[in-house]
Simulated assay, not measured.
Amino acid sequence: MPRYALKIEYDGGPFSGWQRQADQPSVQGAVEAALTRLEPDVPSIAAAGRTDAGVHALGQVAHCDLAKDWDPFRLSEALNYHLKPAPVAVVACDRVGDDFHARFSALERRYLFRLVSRRAPLTHDRGKVWRVPHELALPPMQEAARHLLGKHDFTTFRASICQAASPVKTLDALDIEEVDYPSGREFRFHVRARSFLHNQVRSFVGTLERVGAGAWAPQDVKTALDACDRAACGPVCPPDGLYLAGVGYETAPFAAAQDGTLA
């Protein structure tokens, strides 16, 4: 059966997460329903990351096996037709080898978290960013983020229900930038690692927000990390501002894509 990689973006707000559930809407369920309109016996699809309820994606990657030898462009067009009106889109499609696996072949995942500091409620970006009503300072957050880089036991920043075999992970990047935002400021957290623990990014951002607000000192983040104790973590921020931004592979699918996010 020919195997295809799909690059998918979605608004996670209406869904219970990526993973298919019997009684709740999911992104996986929406994509599989569209696939069955093309071929009735499509096997279950696999994705690079099982995003939680309310988490968005700019560059989720999934693979599927089909009976027919589809032209990738026509497959993406057909899927987008049948995905309507769900806020899900296949933005790229490519034929891949049988040994390609969206999850197990991935060498890195990249996440973006958007945090907006402004007093006024959000209108256009409601559900797409996390808003806090107070000012934040960028340099202390950047200093605190450096304590998290590298290989650590991240028990402090791991959800109690996390099913990962080990809390030890290597964080390759946690870069924070400040940009203009109407009547406020936006802080973008760019996070990169081979894999993540459950709620790890949201735990990072919630804790770093406390540093930016002045409630924590940058050194307090290192103290929390070294404690290896979930109780030492700062608040876990809501999912609204979290995006799976991209996935990296040794041999990148979507070589013809113009944005390069998977190259």
Rank of each mutant, 00 (worst) to 15 (best):
E77T: 14
E77D: 14
A78E: 09
Y81E: 12
Y81F: 15
H82S: 05
L83R: 07
L83M: 08
K84A: 15
K84V: 12
P85I: 10
V88R: 09
V88P: 11
V88C: 10
V88L: 11
V88Q: 10
V90A: 09
V90T: 10
V90R: 07
V90N: 03
V90M: 10
V91L: 11
V91D: 02
V91R: 14
A92G: 14
C93K: 06
C93Q: 09
C93G: 07
R95P: 00
V96A: 08
G97E: 14
G97A: 14
G97T: 14
D98L: 12
D99M: 07
F100H: 10
F100E: 10
F100M: 10
A102P: 07
A102S: 13
R103H: 13
A106S: 14
A106Q: 09
L107V: 11
L107Y: 01
R109W: 12
Y111G: 06
L112A: 05
L112W: 15
L112N: 10
F113R: 06
R114Y: 13
L115P: 03
S117W: 01
S117T: 01
R118A: 03
R118I: 01
R119Y: 07
R119I: 13
A120N: 06
P121C: 00
L122M: 02
L122W: 00
L122N: 00
T123D: 10
H124E: 13
H124L: 15
D125Y: 01
D125Q: 03
R126G: 06
G127H: 00
V129Y: 00
W130P: 00
W130D: 01
P133I: 02
P133D: 04
H134F: 15
E135T: 12
A137H: 14
A137D: 15
L138H: 09
L138K: 05
P139R: 04
M141A: 04
Q142G: 01
E143Q: 15
E143W: 03
A144N: 06
A144D: 07
A144H: 11
A145N: 07
R146W: 08
R146S: 10
H147E: 13
H152F: 09
D153Y: 04
F154E: 13
T155W: 11
T155A: 14
T156G: 11
F157E: 11
